[in-house]
Write a protein that binds this DNA or RNA. Structure first.
Lengths: 213, 213
DNA sequence: GTCTATAGCATGATAGAC
DNA sequence: GTCTATCATGCTATAGAC
């Protein structure tokens, strides 16, 4: 039931963050959602533990039962968000069809996630520097995986003669940069839906790698 | 003489921020440069007035002789940075040649600025939300001007039959987003110089608007 | 114009009752 | 597990001597 309601909300485009459905204690889940909202709105350093706890309907002290520090809250958000987006990208890039089809699918999926989950994505992409050293290193590993996936796809497509790409690494960085930046400017009330932006950006990416139509 | 030394440092790629040469009292200039470095490194909210003053070789109190608040320091950086980058973009877009030449020049110049001045650009592009309401509104006005310049250039090029662009507004946003995001990932020690990245991105932008070679 | 000293306050995190 | 109360710290900004 809760599942259906969530799916319904998602279909209408008015979905709130639903990436945390599997987080174990309900209170921890509420805190994560509250922290995502607050971090996306104000940034990590401008967000107080009182603000997070308040949004979750709890006292500041309750936060520390579920998370050791404010930074650990950011780390969990960042880790789950990165794992999700890397997985979506990887699966789409490994899908059926030629290299052009797979690039289009990868960009469409990746961009759609960054638009639909723009609050999470904003935290994931733009609050990295607030992580502690150790946590930061772990996240960088995840980020390298998405770069690898995109670079390999572009290099393979070029080798197969489907793409006209001289610098696979630089082009992969540019394509991912374009996709990721959607989280910065996207607002739900805008001209286009996440779906439409994903389709549009897939076309742009194909042009960037020299696919002609 | 000081000019020559600065130009030399810039040519070697080891330049420090030189956008503040005209700022009146020397102490204010030192504070601005220190604040740019600190804000770019840690973000506005994680930067303390002690840190800024320390980098400038002053006591925390000295800061308040030259700036009313910490936020005003951010505003001055943001205002000057935006004015500079909008001006560069506008002049390049109004230069000689056809629409394709002008788009290439605009992207090359705009990207090169975001790479060369990546510390300033990072503050300019990613610390906007820390501005006060009034200051924010003023900056948004400047940002709209760069969107206007790019959208007009793309629409005119499409009307002239040089570009294949169905959605000038969306494409302009995407091209600017791609350029701006250079400030996020650029590091001086990387594989390519600001010049090379500018040239590369100009080619990508031409492909995005459907120019064939 | 710059300093030392500090007011006034908000913050992250903890203690201990329930 | 959650609360109220609070500690210790560090922050922005100001006062007043020089």
């Amino acid at each position: 039931m809760a599942q259906e309601a969530s799916a319904g909300a998602r279909a209408r485009g008015g979905a709130r963050e639903d990436s945390w459905g599997s987080v174990a204690p309900e209170a921890a889940r509420r805190l994560l959602v509250a922290a995502v909202d607050a971090f996306a709105e104000r940034g990590f350093h401008a967000t107080t533990t009182r603000d997070i706890a308040g949004r979750a309907g709890m006292s500041p002290a309750a936060l520390y039962i579920h998370f050791r520090t404010k930074e650990e809250l950011l780390f969990q958000i960042s880790r789950v968000g990165h794992e999700r987006s890397v997985r979506l990208l990887t699966e789409a890039a490994a899908g059926p069809g030629g290299h052009a089809d797979r690039l289009a699918a990868a960009v469409r999926t990746f961009v759609r996630w960054h638009a639909e989950h723009h609050t999470t994505a904003r935290v994931v992409q733009y609050e990295l520097s607030a992580l502690g050293e150790e946590h930061y290193a772990e996240i960088v590993g995840l980020r390298r995986r998405s770069e690898d996936v995109m670079r390999t796809l572009l290099a393979d497509g070029a080798a197969a003669g489907e793409f006209d790409v001289a610098d696979a690494r630089g082009t992969a960085l540019a394509v991912l940069s374009l996709c990721v930046d959607v989280a910065r400017w996207f607002t739900p009330g805008g001209r286009r839906t996440p779906d439409e932006i994903g389709a549009f950006y897939a076309e742009l990416a194909l042009r960037m790698v020299g696919v002609r139509r």
